[in-house]
């Protein structure tokens, strides 16, 4: 188990280390679409921006969006587990370790299931998170899990293959369990695990959102992009 974690961490650290300009240009040379963008940005004297990855359309688009979110979540929890925040209890560490492995499982599953249709491995940007701070880490975890739940719930009706719908259902309830546990760590034995901010107090329905909906705050895609260096888009999805 430790070995698994270690090798994942090494891999992830490599991904997350801010890319030096030189390295970045080298990286862009491997990707045709990015090369143009990179050179163009250089000419203007601005730091190069990586190309935006669109998740695609239809069921593949939805599964790729899920893959993007799972990549993001997995990378986040791997970083959390590398060095826990100050005064993390054993119970908290156990929960955060379990969740890391769940998200890695989801990430690896989507990659395998999508095969050649899978989007690239995304590069995360967690510079807004203070990983030494409990409230920063758990607050981010809460946002990511709630976003995941609302994304799966909102995308469900646009999935045409019923088998994929069931598959999404198998994953979303685990994300909801995560959200509940994280929320309870922040506010133990309160109503927060299924709080009125996410579950409507009049209908008892969880929040659901289509990928680009901006009702009630930034879209799923925009929220994901706040933690991504390599941005995503979902222009063919609702």
């Amino acid at each position: 188990m430790d070995n698994h974690l270690k090798s994942q961490n090494t891999f992830q650290t490599a991904l997350q280390t801010p890319l030096a300009r030189k390295k970045f240009l080298k990286y862009t040379l491997f990707s045709g679409g990015t090369l143009m963008l990179g050179l163009d940005a250089c000419k203007k004297g601005n730091p190069p921006s990586p190309e935006v990855t669109d998740v695609g359309s239809g069921d593949i688009g939805i599964l790729n969006l899920a893959y993007a979110l799972e990549q993001l979540e997995a990378a986040f929890y791997i970083k959390v587990n590398e060095s826990f925040y100050t005064n993390a209890t054993e119970a908290e560490k156990a929960i955060l370790s379990d969740i890391m492995y769940h998200e890695m499982t989801h990430r690896d599953f989507f990659k395998a299931a999508l095969g050649r249709s899978a989007i690239r491995e995304l590069i995360t940007d967690f510079s807004s998170i203070d990983f030494r701070s409990r409230s920063s880490v758990l607050g981010t975890a809460k946002a990511l899990e709630d976003t995941g739940v609302s994304a799966y719930n909102g995308a469900g009706q646009y999935i045409s293959n019923p088998d994929y719908l069931t598959l999404a259902g198998k994953i979303v309830s685990v994300e909801a369990r995560h959200a509940s546990a994280i929320r309870d760590l922040l506010n133990p034995l309160s109503a927060a695990f299924a709080g009125d901010d996410v579950v409507s107090p009049t209908t008892g329905l969880d929040f659901s959102r289509t990928p680009n909906s901006t009702t009630g705050g930034p879209s799923i895609v925009a929220t994901a992009n706040t933690f991504l260096y390599t941005k995503i888009s979902a222009i063919h999805l609702p």
Partner: peptide, 21 residues
Amino acid sequence: SGAVLTAALDIHSVEARHACE
């Protein structure tokens, strides 16, 4: 079933939040 499915999914994840707690 469109909105009916979404409502069912929205209940489903609430049950999961409960279950975890």
